[in-house]
Design a protein around this nucleic acid. Structure first.
Lengths: 121, 121
DNA sequence: CTTATATAAAACCAAGTAGTTAATTAACTA
DNA sequence: TAGTTAATTAACTACTTGGTTTTATATAAG
């Protein structure tokens, strides 16, 4: 993976990782705390790997305290991802706007060729 | 991939696919129109595959018109993804809030064991 | 009926992902 | 020093991804 935005979205494309972020939104935690809820489903190294993905995507930061590795949420990358999505907000904010936009698209493509199809709309 | 949200984020984790969505935000287009800007970098089947990823993630809808396949943006899945991110908005909205949150986390973990470490903060 | 156009499907490959178990490192504790 | 706890690393496997080239299908146009 190359660019930051792709890395962020890729890191979010996994329910385990999203749950880890959810846990960290309540406060910092070290690896075994974070892993505990998942140990019925997967091993500790699997969680460590997920954390490494989140760390490389700069969604969390890991520090050191004795043998523990406290992790904290880092929301900067989330901000960028949310910023990218903002451009599309207008497309879901009201469904009648989408219809309006659709009609504009159709008419701008067709208006040199007559308006037969307008009957249907 | 399993859940809708993961599928959405995974589909967004590629610059080509994000550019395709960007193009579709200006109006519907068929496959070869969409592919044109990318044909220096990759083949047409590659673009078709990207479109299929977007389609399975329900980010676009493909219809039929003669031998063309007009594609349109479908923002519902984007809405859900943006909705998920909303929970984290508070973590990037102002950096001093993050520091405040951090301090609350630290003190709630340590206040039963004395406050020796508070000197450092 | 033949040919050109638009798109999809098939078969393949290299690289990446998500998991495993086993071994290793590092720090505290007795 | 020996043992325990926390976490990482290594080696391996199965699956997925993103690309390729080649082949096929469907529609339109002569």
């Amino acid at each position: 993976m190359q660019d930051q935005l792709s890395q962020t979205f890729a890191a979010l494309a996994d329910p385990t990782r999203r749950a880890l972020l959810g846990r960290l939104s309540h406060g910092q935690a070290n690896v075994s705390d974070l892993a505990r809820p998942f140990l019925k489903d997967m091993s500790l190294p699997a969680v460590t790997k997920h954390l490494k993905v989140l760390e490389r995507a700069r969604l969390i930061t890991k520090t050191r305290a004795a043998q523990w590795r406290p992790c904290r949420l880092n929301a900067v990358a989330l901000k960028d991802a949310a910023g990218w999505m903002e451009k599309y907000r207008v497309f879901w904010e009201e469904s009648f706007d989408r219809l309006d936009d659709y009609l504009k698209t159709v008419t701008s493509k067709k208006h040199t060729k007559g308006r037969k199809n307008d009957l249907k709309k």
